[in-house]
């Protein structure tokens, strides 16, 4: 097992100050580890990987790894990623976003990236809250949960990222929690290996901003909650209906093949070139 940490260290930027800026117990570090292992497993070189991140806690993880890293503007990660991928389809473009980033301010970009099937692996690090700005409710904050902008409980319905991605046409949609690292490694590796727009939602706890306001005494309690609450997709149907609604399914929800935008574009360029000969 020793290679795990050693491997990660090989990908870290050691001229950057560690430990990283994230709070104790924040799951973002676990996702970063999983991402590094997936890149390594696929034999991708550091040069061909472009990590594009948004604003918020999730946006901060890009700076720590020795890939080509672009820390963009709030919510616009996927637009930058689209430009990069179309400009150089040989690059492996990974977009790291938070829930507020990807679904509130960047909701429209998210839908369109999925619709046009641009060759980007999108990781949405969903902690159900705006962490960096101090715990305001996001579009994935569950109903009746507390936040600094919903001090009497959230009155709005929340987004289900998986359903949203499915509806927008993403050909690969998967979800895991940071506690289920084996699954996380597997779905990120699969997503990275596939062409087109691949969405991975990662449930990651924010104890500092979400947990403390919502009756989780410690970070560990949040992980325990994931353990109790998350359920593999294929086991879900075995539960009685009312219990199904209480649980969060994890696993692979969609796995289809659809030509990516850059492939289709290349086909057009080819056709035009043939015609001009």
């Amino acid at each position: 097992m020793a290679e795990v940490t050693q491997l990660i260290h090989h990908y870290l930027r050691h001229n950057k100050r560690f430990p990283h800026v994230l709070c104790p117990g924040c799951g973002h570090g676990i996702v970063l580890g999983s991402l590094v292992r997936s890149v390594h497993q696929l034999g991708l070189t550091k040069d061909e990987v472009v990590l594009v991140a948004g604003i918020g806690c999730s946006g901060r993880i890009a700076v720590y790894v020795d890939f080509n890293t672009v820390h963009t503007t709030h919510g616009r990660t996927l637009t930058f990623a689209t430009g990069i991928k179309m400009a150089n389809p040989r690059l492996k473009v990974i977009a790291v976003m938070g829930d507020g980033d990807a679904l509130s301010i960047g909701g429209n970009h998210f839908l369109h990236a999925a619709r046009r099937n641009i060759g980007v692996t999108a990781l949405i690090l969903n902690n159900n809250i705006y962490g960096m700005t101090g715990g305001q409710s996001s579009s994935t904050t569950a109903e009746n949960c507390y936040s600094t902008t919903s001090p009497y409980g959230q009155q709005e319905q929340s987004f289900d990222i998986v359903e949203l991605a499915k509806a927008a046409g993403a050909p690969y949609v998967a979800r895991s929690t940071v506690l289920h690292v084996k699954l996380l490694d597997r779905i990120i590796t699969t997503a990275l290996a596939r062409p087109g727009f691949n969405l991975v939602e990662v449930l990651t706890p924010c104890h500092t901003q979400f947990g403390r306001k919502n009756k989780f005494k410690t970070t560990v309690d949040m992980y325990k909650w994931y353990k109790k609450n998350a359920i593999p997709l294929d086991s879900l149907s075995k539960l009685p209906q009312e219990e199904q609604n209480q649980r969060t399914p994890i696993g692979i929800f969609v796995e289809e093949n659809r030509p990516s935008l850059e492939e289709r574009y290349a086909a057009i360029t080819c056709r035009l070139e043939e015609a001009s000969k």
Binding site: M1, A2, V4, T5, Q6, I8, H9, L12, F18, P19, H20, L22, G25, C26, G27, H28, G29, I30, G33, S34, V178, L179, V181
Partner: peptide
Amino acid sequence: EHHCPDFAIVVKT
């Protein structure tokens, strides 16, 4: 080792 968010644990044989 997999779950340490800060890459602070090493398990060596």
